[in-house]
Every structure is written in structure tokens, then in C-alpha cells.
Design a binder for these strands. Structure first.
Lengths: 157, 157
DNA sequence: ATTATTTTGTTTCCTTGTCAACAAAATAAT
DNA sequence: ATTATTTTGTTGACAAGGAAACAAAATAAT
């Protein structure tokens, strides 16, 4: 296995581990709430005027899936929808008071995760951080171009 | 957002992009086969005596899900199961000739992906590679310990 | 201004994966 | 040797998410 593969596979495995471990811890603390619901709440709080489409793009999910998820969150009383007077099509979301409680608990949990992993990050130099960030940025931009290419291909079919 | 978050979020987004883009390309080339099926085939070919449990651990999925997936692959004639004379419990998998054809196509596709992303990796120095790999390794080991801790907690409940 | 295209959100059907319970075999404990 | 525990794979009920078709609104094209 060459280094490119090692990096990709390494990050894949690392990412899966983080997701798996945090998901478990989260559903342990926030009983009754799925990690997908909590992440949705997190995004809505951090991004004003978020709607189904933006959530779907961010989470790499279909609009259909997000539509169902947000409906469930409304039913649970964690978020509410609103519209703007000059647009009768787009539907935005914001947290309810109850939703903000969940958000706060999640925030604390997040800090707990950071504390848990502090030892690892403390050993990383500023140069290493910047090097990794630059790699991520370059690769990400490259893939964006490839995705754009694919969209064009699909349209011309 | 601090650098730790930037790195984690950056890799999360990068990983999602790669998965999303490659999945699309893969299901375009290997029509009739889902990316999950192909990945399963890939693992079976690369790891002798792979069974349901090992596959589940590798893919961070439940044994139930893998059990269904492998049954489907057997039905499709891509893999076959076998046992060893000294163990009547464990069931292993290997590829059929037809499965090897799919594996080969996937390999070629993989090379195509590497070629596609070559430009990005060419700009990475040996030091950057090693720095990233060392980070991944350290973080991964740290999480393994945390996962082990959690297992103990769950057992003592 | 009218028509065509795109965007946005929803719903239905279907696939995939989880969860929990289970049986059979292997291993550990006594 | 016998019993208890753990490991392994399977199943059925259920939930989450994707694909495609759809209507309504917004935007672009003419």
C-alpha cells in the first residue's frame, strides 16, 4: 500500500472511529435523541435561515431524508419553521427553547470530546496543523471541480 | 472555530466528498452492483479467511447487516462460503470466478481515482505525508484506548 | 407578458442497516 | 466432566435513508 492509500485509508478509519465512539457517547447522554437529530439541531443553530436544501447539501443526504428528519424534529418540538414575506417557497428552521436545551447539552458533550482528545492535539505543532489544513483545502477544491465535471456530464446525457 | 475543529471538520467533509463522488462513479461503471457490495468483495479478496465478524468490525457495521449482505453476494454468485474441518462454527468467504471479475474492474477503477487525484498528491512532500500518517496513527491509537474504556464501562453496568 | 426551466419541499415505495432475541458451537471456569 | 460464559452467525421487526415522481413557487428565456 502506497502512502496516498495509507493516508486516505487512515483517515477513513479514524473518521469512522470518531463517529462510532461519539455517536455511542452522545446517545448515552442524550437519551431519546439520535445523533442525526442532534447534528441537525447543531447545524440549524449555527446557520441562520437554514432550510431542507442547505441541510441536505451539508450532510450529503437527499432532500427527502432531511424533509422527514425535520418533520420529526418539529413534531418533537425541538425546531420550528418560518418563512419570509417575500418568498412563499423556501421554508427555514430555527430552534425552539426546548431545542436550545438539547443544543446546549451537545455543546458540553463536544467540549468533553475535545478534552478527551486534548493529549493528541497538544503534540501537534502549528506547522503540522497548517500543513494538514492546506492539504485538506487543496484536495477538497480538486474534488469540487471533479464533482462539477460530473454534473456537466450527467446533464449532457 | 479552532484548528482542531477545522482539521476534523475538514477531513469529515473531504471524506464525505470522496465517498459521494467515488460511489457515483463506481455505480456508473459497475452497473447492477452497489458500492457496499463491491467494498465487501474487495475486503474478502484482500483478507484470507474473512468472516461475518471481521467484515463487521472493518466496516463499522453490525454482524446482522453483514450477514444479509454476504447472503446476497452468495445468491448473486460473487462469493462462496467455506468452513474448516476443526471448527464447525465460523464461516469464511472467498471470491468466485465471477466475483474476481468484479474485483478486477474495481481495481482498475481505483487506479483511475488515483490518477484523477494525482495532481493533489504530487504536491505533497514526503515530510507532509509522514506527518499526517503519524497524526492518524496517534489519534487512532488514542481512540482505541477510549473505545476499550467504554467497553469496560458497559460491562460493569 | 407569456412560456419554459429550475428550485424547493414533500410523499410513496423500496432498500439497507440496526436492534434484539435466538441457537449452536467454542471456550473458560469450577 | 460439567456448567457457565462468550463468540459466531442468523432472523424478524423496525427505522433511516435513497430514488423517483410530483406540485408549487421562483427564475430565466423569449
Amino acid at each position: 500500500m502506497n502512502k496516498e492509500e495509507q493516508v486516505i485509508m487512515g483517515f477513513r478509519d479514524l473518521y469512522n472511529k470518531i463517529v462510532w465512539l461519539n455517536k455511542d457517547k452522545m446517545e448515552e447522554s442524550l437519551k431519546g435523541f439520535k445523533s442525526s437529530e442532534v447534528h441537525c439541531i447543531e447545524y440549524i443553530e449555527k446557520n441562520v435561515d437554514s432550510n431542507v436544501t442547505k441541510l441536505a447539501e451539508y450532510f450529503y443526504m437527499t432532500r427527502g431524508a432531511i424533509s422527514k428528519l425535520t418533520k420529526k424534529l418539529i413534531k418533537k418540538g425541538l425546531i420550528e419553521s418560518y418563512q419570509k414575506s417575500d418568498n412563499k417557497k423556501e421554508i427555514y428552521f430555527r430552534l425552539t427553547e426546548q431545542g436550545k436545551v438539547i443544543y446546549k447539552i451537545h455543546e458540553d458533550l463536544h467540549k468533553e470530546f475535545q478534552e478527551r482528545d486534548k493529549a493528541v492535539f497538544d503534540k501537534i505543532t502549528e506547522e503540522q496543523f497548517d500543513s494538514m489544513l492546506s492539504f485538506v483545502e487543496k484536495y477538497s477544491k480538486h474534488l469540487d471541480q471533479e464533482i462539477k465535471k460530473m454534473d456537466i456530464d450527467n446533464k449532457s446525457e
